[in-house]
Simulated scan of single mutants.
Amino acid sequence: MEVENRTAITIKTTVAAPIAKVWKCWSDPQHITNWAFASDEWHAPYADNDLKEGGKFQTTMAAKDGSMSFDFEGVYTSIKDHELIEYTILDGRKVSVAFTDNGSTTDIVETFEAEDTLPLEMQQSGWQAILDNFKKYTETCE
């Protein structure tokens, strides 16, 4: 179901790592499970990723206390190696993630269509927290 006129929210970060490392940490399921959650009370016990146009991804995000979990999943619509990832979440919302290679650092700009149930500020802060977690993980992993 296509929804018209959704509000777009943009979040950003700069990762102190070269694009090859950033791309690998973003797309490899073994790395995704280490950063794809918004707070220390949550984790990502499962991730699967087929990074190609038409490929599917799924990440399980769960409260560590077992009280709640959900699968974040979708289908890739456009991939430009080390530059751009676009996908559609199963609920029909679109997401675009742009990567800019600055040599020893990489800028990430992620734009997603907001959902209708949660306040925009809550969605922006949640997605930004996950992106900040990605930055922290990527800058310290091997």
Rank of each mutant, 00 (worst) to 15 (best):
S96R: 15
D107P: 06
T59A: 04
G103F: 04
Y76M: 00
K80G: 00
E53C: 10
N49D: 12
F134P: 05
F134Y: 09
D81S: 14
K24V: 06
P29S: 07
D50N: 09
H43T: 11
D132E: 13
L84R: 06
D116P: 11
T88A: 12
N49W: 08
A63F: 07
V15H: 02
E4W: 04
A38D: 11
T100N: 09
L120P: 11
S104Q: 14
S27A: 13
N49H: 11
W35Y: 07
M61H: 07
P119M: 15
T77A: 04
T7H: 10
F134H: 09
N133T: 11
M1H: 02
G92T: 07
G74Y: 09
S69H: 10
I19D: 01
G54K: 05
Y87E: 04
A17D: 05
S69F: 05
A38V: 07
I130T: 15
D81M: 14
G74R: 03
G103S: 02
M68R: 02
E53V: 15
K12C: 08
W127F: 15
Q128P: 14
T105D: 00
N34V: 10
K136A: 14
K80R: 09
M68C: 03
K52L: 02
N34S: 11
Y87K: 02
W35P: 04
E139V: 10
E73Q: 12
D50E: 12
S78Y: 02
W127V: 15
C141E: 13
N102Q: 12
Y137L: 14
W23Q: 07
Q58D: 01
C25R: 06
T77N: 06
C141R: 08
Q123K: 08
E110W: 06
A44Y: 01
N133K: 12
V97P: 00
A62H: 09
P18C: 03
D28V: 04
E115S: 14
Q124M: 12
I130D: 05
I85D: 00
E142A: 15
M61I: 15
A38L: 08
D28C: 04
A36V: 07
